[in-house]
């Protein structure tokens, strides 16, 4: 139950951060990216190594977060998927199914 509440609080915090224009900054654990109408929102995020990046897909289409020649996360329609940021994850990523969807991750040192 505690875990659930914490998770909800995290989501609320993520939503608040999403409202700003600056890149979403790393906070206590998870950095949230919403996918809506074929766009990553926000497109640019800042994380610390070890933090979780969580994509929430609000579209009816499957998307991916793909780093060329590296990792890929599949994000099914109306679902959530995560990736734990590694030290070397300052990368540009895109959706393999719709490469016009682009995002950027910066790992803070």
């Amino acid at each position: 139950m505690t875990a659930l509440l914490n998770r909800r609080q995290l989501l609320a915090a993520g939503a608040t951060l999403l409202a700003g224009n600056s890149p979403t900054r790393a906070h206590d654990g998870t950095v949230h990216v919403v996918i809506e109408k074929l766009a990553f929102l926000p497109a640019d995020i800042e994380v610390k190594a070890g933090q979780i990046i969580e994509w929430t897909n609000k579209d009816a289409f499957a998307h991916t977060a793909t780093v060329k020649s590296s990792w890929e996360v599949l994000i099914p329609p109306k679902e959530v998927a995560t990736h734990v940021a590694a030290a070397g994850d300052s990368v540009d990523y895109y959706c393999r199914f719709h490469p016009n969807m682009k995002g950027k991750i910066t790992v803070l040192v």
């Binding site: 109408k37 074929l38 289409f61 199914f97 719709h98 490469p99 016009n100």
Partner: peptide, 16 residues
């Protein structure tokens, strides 16, 4: 408009 964004994505996917 959503369709256009989606199909532009498909075009790029096909090009890849």
């Amino acid at each position: 408009e959503t369709g256009l964004k989606l199909f532009q994505g498909h075009q790029q996917h096909a090009e890849h």
